[in-house]
């Protein structure tokens, strides 16, 4: 593609026409992002400083009180935040470890490799709602397959899983591993990029399989891990659908599954509190932003880009 300088733009009719067509062809996307993303973002920022009931168009300006009430006075807000952070802290590292582990195994050159890869990816294709309903039954304390097997194989009396405030969050963390196939596909792509020459060199140096994995494979796929880490952080702080379906929206038992996004949704669409909900959305955005920046800051220390010169 040809670079067009500003000067040329002003003078050349051809360039102007090109610009016009360029904008014209991009306009569906431009309009879409302005109407459905940019405008709502700006509007929600404004709403977060108002009391706005949705049905009543009057928006009363209340300054920072939506934010201060949430942060300092609302214990449901704190509980839902704790739940979401808990979920993120346990599900992300677990997802990375299990994901990389499975990817390494699926990368071995064995018969039926493609079949295994497909199998591990399949769960990702199941819609969240259908999956949530299946999980309800899998983890049912009385009749669920998990507790039945625990009892018949090991004579262990299984916990209440989703019925117990103590076990419910670990249970949904376990469930999150079910869709680890999403990450596995990306790790596999990363594994293809590890140069064979490095393995050959390691072999010459007498490295065993474990050493090759630890000193060659893992460092070479750190950019992919980094990517998954950030996507995981954003996704898990927004965790909503499965918990919503399992608990019918109220985060039972004992609000142990009442996640941040569920509280936001409830404030917005059940309690007429669009202002508060907007403030919640912005707090979430700032938290994700800070989290991402922190991960970025540390990345120089552990993420290795093969194409880069050693620093």
């Amino acid at each position: 593609m040809q670079m067009v300088s500003l000067e040329a733009l002003r003078t050349s009719r051809m360039a102007r026409r090109n610009l016009f067509y360029g904008v014209l062809f991009a306009s569906p996307w431009l309009l879409g992002i302005i109407l459905f993303t940019a405008y709502p973002v700006v509007a929600s920022f404004y709403y977060s400083f108002t009391e706005y009931t949705v049905v009543n168009p009057v928006k009363q300006f209340v300054g920072l009180s939506n934010y201060t009430n949430l942060i300092f006075k609302d214990d449901v807000f704190r509980r839902s935040l704790y739940n979401s952070v808990y979920y993120a802290v346990f599900s992300i590292p677990l997802g990375v470890i299990v994901g990389v582990g499975i990817a390494l195994m699926l990368n071995m050159k064995i018969k039926g490799q493609a079949v295994y890869r497909t199998i591990y990816f399949l769960p990702v294709l199941i819609p969240d709602v259908a999956m949530a309903i299946l999980w309800i039954w899998v983890f049912n304390a009385q009749f669920g397959i998990v507790n039945t097997l625990l009892w018949q194989l090991f004579r262990i009396n299984g916990p209440g899983w989703l019925a117990s405030p103590m076990w419910s969050k670990p249970t949904v963390v376990l469930m999150s591993l079910w869709t680890v196939g999403q990450g596995v596909v990306i790790y596999l792509a990363g594994l293809q990029d590890v140069p064979q020459s490095l393995y050959d060199a390691a072999e010459v140096d007498g490295a065993n399989a474990l050493q090759k994995t630890w000193h060659v494979t893992i460092p070479m796929i750190t950019p992919v891990i980094f990517f998954n880490l950030i996507m995981g952080m954003i996704g898990s702080l927004q965790y909503f659908t499965i918990a919503y379906v399992i608990t019918g929206g109220d985060g039972r038992p004992g609000q142990s599954l009442f996640f941040y996004a569920m509280y936001l949704y409830r404030n917005a669409f059940a309690f007429f509190k669009m202002g508060t909900a907007s403030a919640q959305a912005w707090i979430l955005f700032i938290m994700v932003l800070i989290g991402t920046l922190l991960v970025f800051r540390t990345s120089a220390r552990w993420v290795y880009y093969g194409g880069e010169e050693a620093r």
């Binding site: 709602v129 309800i136 919503y244 608990t247 929206g249 109220d250 669409f269």
Partner: peptide, 11 residues
């Protein structure tokens, strides 16, 4: 299909 309207399932 995860839109909240369909989610009225187990409560």
């Amino acid at each position: 299909p995860a839109a909240p309207s369909v989610v009225e399932v187990q409560k």
